[in-house]
Design a protein around this nucleic acid. Sequence first.
DNA 1: CATGAATGAGTATTCATTCAT
DNA 2: TATGAATGAATACTCATTCAT
Lengths: 222, 222, 222, 222
Amino acid sequence: MPAKAAARKPRGRPKDEALVAVRRQQILDAAAPVFAQHGYGNTDVQFVADALQVGKGTVYRYFPSKEALFLAAVDRGMQRLTERFAADVYTIAEPLERMEQALRVYLDFFREHPEYVELLILERAEFRGRKKPTYAQHRDAHMPRWHELFRGLIAEGRMRDVPVERTAEVLNDLVYGTMFTNYFAARDESIEEWAERIMDLVFNGILSDAERAKRKGRRGNR
Amino acid sequence: MPAKAAARKPRGRPKDEALVAVRRQQILDAAAPVFAQHGYGNTDVQFVADALQVGKGTVYRYFPSKEALFLAAVDRGMQRLTERFAADVYTIAEPLERMEQALRVYLDFFREHPEYVELLILERAEFRGRKKPTYAQHRDAHMPRWHELFRGLIAEGRMRDVPVERTAEVLNDLVYGTMFTNYFAARDESIEEWAERIMDLVFNGILSDAERAKRKGRRGNR
Amino acid sequence: MPAKAAARKPRGRPKDEALVAVRRQQILDAAAPVFAQHGYGNTDVQFVADALQVGKGTVYRYFPSKEALFLAAVDRGMQRLTERFAADVYTIAEPLERMEQALRVYLDFFREHPEYVELLILERAEFRGRKKPTYAQHRDAHMPRWHELFRGLIAEGRMRDVPVERTAEVLNDLVYGTMFTNYFAARDESIEEWAERIMDLVFNGILSDAERAKRKGRRGNR
Amino acid sequence: MPAKAAARKPRGRPKDEALVAVRRQQILDAAAPVFAQHGYGNTDVQFVADALQVGKGTVYRYFPSKEALFLAAVDRGMQRLTERFAADVYTIAEPLERMEQALRVYLDFFREHPEYVELLILERAEFRGRKKPTYAQHRDAHMPRWHELFRGLIAEGRMRDVPVERTAEVLNDLVYGTMFTNYFAARDESIEEWAERIMDLVFNGILSDAERAKRKGRRGNR
DNA sequence: CATGAATGAGTATTCATTCAT
DNA sequence: TATGAATGAATACTCATTCAT
């Protein structure tokens, strides 16, 4: 209780809030794969306790309910992804390279942590309507950066003059769908290759130059 | 009255197989939105019975378990989608138009039937590992047609010479992700516009002609 | 309704009550082994209907409830036993021979119809307290005859002067226990041998003449 | 506190294995009369919980299923009987006295614990075929002792030279049947008298000396 | 009459949460 | 503070019985 802490000078061992935070994180990291394996409904809190080799009551000391535990686990997943982006994506200045890197990091993260893919599904399935999906929070937080990046590219004449919001969403959908399908289909191809393939299409489209030219003409006629 | 009736005179109320099929379908159509609203675990079979204004036992006369009921409901959804494709997509001969139409029909179907989006999620969440997702069955059934279509376009020089399987998967992922996000984000933009935006990117990519040319040169240097 | 039948002269086909009785008996004979196999609680009335290849409703036309059906089946078993006794036991005049025959017929009957052993158990288990066991009814109906028989033997000096009621009950208990154990233990020895063994003990006891003499002396001292 | 406690300091509430055993027994002792009163199928586990004034979940903490609970209750009954035999029967050396005592103790035990008679019936009725009856296990465990006792008596010339296995079974059937009938008929006569009557018959048979002599002659002629 | 479709009351079992130790 | 014993609300599924056809 902060008020109390302010009233009395902290003396002796400070209530080790940091320790509590560490413990919470340990629990979340243990809980994620357990939820991912059994699903939300079929996961007993006891399973999580077992995975940690602690009593069930202990889990409840750190999280008020199974629901809170689950949602915190999802949240922690998205936090981690954000950290990865901060370290490995937003440090790249060149816009097109940053795009490619974002795709790679994204796919790589969920291949390393398939449990978080499950958790995103489970969150949607179980808490539909009750909560804005954690994934959507993540997406909305990052979107403006991409809009800006696109605007820059268009200004420089490197990108076609397309509506940036829509385009960002289309690309986001592509990446999102790829993440899910990658996981569901247990695709084992190298991320590197997939990423290259995707970026080629995103950058160049599928049409031949001849067809593009023909269609450009047609559109002009509209 | 079937011919058989002449052979042996059945006493009492005769069975009616056709009626059974109709009844099953009515139940599935009632079950889909109920499952979609409450999720699998939170759906009492009684809710489905209530929606139909019949007794719970009646539902169990037609489906041996809640699980069977749910899975049949998902299946029925994909069946409907397949019917829509047969009627509105595969009847179009021109390849690029067929692609655009496929996208439109797909997005339209799931906007009309958002309950089936939920059902796909719930199936994955609840029966993870126990069953090949119904969606994947649908995808795999349709893929070869698109491979063929792409090969034809490449042969005609209308499409860049890209690996057709990979490309088909990337596009599939894009559509799949769009369907989910459309639903989750409750995007209210017209399908028509979205489809146009997507197809523009798919056909032309995002880069300007200048950037494309520059990169084409670079790639040649690799 | 007999009264009505008296009021109007029976004309045309008489309400064939005999047919109904036959049908009831067919149902009971089919029901007995079904109940015996599954137990009372685990027997669906449908099983009985299936065994008869009729609809479930038909069974209910002849018996108002599952309970009535079951109890009637038990009753029919005891009726059959009574018939066997009338034909094969009470036709024998010589008292000791009649006793031996009674034992043989009894054990034989239940070996031929093990389903009725089960039914006796099930009746007790399921309707404990709600109904005088059918078996007990049978026993009580026959007891007086045995009392009389014993009194005759004693009067003739062929049987020791023991209290006939008690003795009859002890013998009844012996036979009753043997029937159950025979069935439960699936004893396969010939009935003939068992019966002989039992009657030897009943007639002569287990003690040697010497021991009998010694004990008789002792008892005299009391 | 076990030695192990020194090795690892357990945090929180320790498990107490002894308490578990006691608790299980309390539950079984409460369950026996409840099952006996309502029958197996009609007993809600809640009834047992109510009898103990605990929650239903508590019963399930100690027994994995209603079935396990029931079977354990039957088992406990036979255990108790065995204990009584060890204390009050097998401590008697004189063979004929031991026989009389066995009968008395047996009948007395089931008069004191009529619930176990019911449980034996219910076990047979409900688990027919799925399990060797607990009663039969008890019987088979004790049989060899009686065989030995009989052989001794025959060797000493105190018992007629009859086949001991068969004889033991006949007597067992007698006792078994008596136990059931005693209970079903709610006989209120003193056990002492019944036992005496039974043993008189078992020892001496029902025939008069004259009849015995006559029949012995006849048998000799066979 | 015979049938089987419809019904809904009845019950074993699970598991999130609480709290005494 | 950590624990696990206790709890009871929640729910899928069955089957005796009814009754329209």
